[in-house]
């Protein structure tokens, strides 16, 4: 399988604090990779680095978009990285709260549209067509994610689980080849978590989008991931399949602390 994201020796310093310490991570095509680790391990920092919100102190981030040339993504602006094909959701939901659900998804289509100020004012054929296409596409995406009943609701009035799914829908609208999900199951009940599991698998299987997710809910992690990376104090401490990770003593130590008798 082809590698689509390669991170080599990634370092991120905040003043004297080293949040990411020589991190190596790879994501391959059509793979679901889970990034786990105790609180403060640097998982979200890692997301922020590869999506361009923080410029990394050192190391390499290389993206391999399908059918296009590979691209070095260090120090690119977040919108450029989204354009290449990396989309993300946020740990604490960051929707455009006062816009409707459909508009939220339409914003996601922004970087795949081209009309500018002149187009907006004269509203020529191309612009009108593009606008209609965007509405159509956004409807389709919402239907796929299962939010079509909320189309014209204001985003902040949505129930919590729907808000999380809308974040995924919005990210999908940018046509990514790799989707980064930051704790998608946080705060969800058992049924919602189950639906989410199905949704993530469907995105991978039907849309052929690879997924890198941070998650604390081990049921989600174990049932979804093809590959797990464990982080602690900014370092990668283990890597492997679910079985390998479950029985890895280093991982158990990081999560539960040292066994006194050992």
């Amino acid at each position: 399988m082809k590698t689509i994201l390669k991170v080599k020796n990634l370092i991120m310093n905040f003043g004297g604090l080293r949040a990411l310490d020589h991190l190596d991570i790879q994501v391959r095509e059509e793979e679901i990779v889970a990034l786990i680790g105790p609180n403060g391990a640097g998982k979200t920092t890692f997301f922020n680095c590869i999506t361009g919100i923080f410029p990394p102190t050192g190391g390499e981030i290389i993206l391999f978009p399908p059918k296009k040339k590979s691209k070095r993504a260090n120090r690119l602006k977040p919108n450029k990285i989204t354009e290449i094909g990396l989309a993300r959701t946020f740990q604490n939901i960051r929707l455009f709260q006062n816009m409707t659900v459909l508009e939220n998804v339409m914003i996601g289509r922004h970087c795949r549209m081209s009309s500018g100020i002149v187009g907006a004012i004269f509203r020529g054929k191309a612009t009108v067509k593009e606008e209609e296409q965007v509405v159509e596409d956004s409807f389709k995406i919402l239907k796929k994610i299962g939010l079509s009943e909320y189309v014209n609701e204001i985003a902040m009035n949505l129930p919590y689980g729907a808000q999380r799914r809308l974040e995924i829908a919005r990210a999908m609208a940018t046509e990514p080849f790799l989707l980064l999900l930051d704790e998608p199951a946080a705060g969800m009940n058992i049924q919602e978590t189950k639906d989410l599991n199905e949704l993530i698998l469907r995105i991978r299987d039907e849309e052929k989008i690879s997924i890198l997710l941070i998650e604390h809910d081990m049921r989600v992690v174990m049932s979804l991931s093809d590959h797990i990376v464990v982080m602690d104090y900014g370092k990668k401490i283990a890597e492997g399949t679910t079985e390998e990770i479950k029985n890895n003593p280093v991982v158990i130590k990081a999560y539960l602390g040292e066994d006194i008798d050992a």
Binding site: T51, G52, I53, K77, P78, N79, T82, E83, A87, R88, F90, R94, L95, F96, Q97, N98, M99, I107, G108, H110, C111, R112, R170, A171, T174
Partner: peptide
């Protein structure tokens, strides 16, 4: 509405 999310959605700030 949200500057960070807006950039992450591919809008040039």
């Amino acid at each position: 509405e949200d500057e960070v999310a807006c950039q992450a959605m591919g809008i040039d700030r």
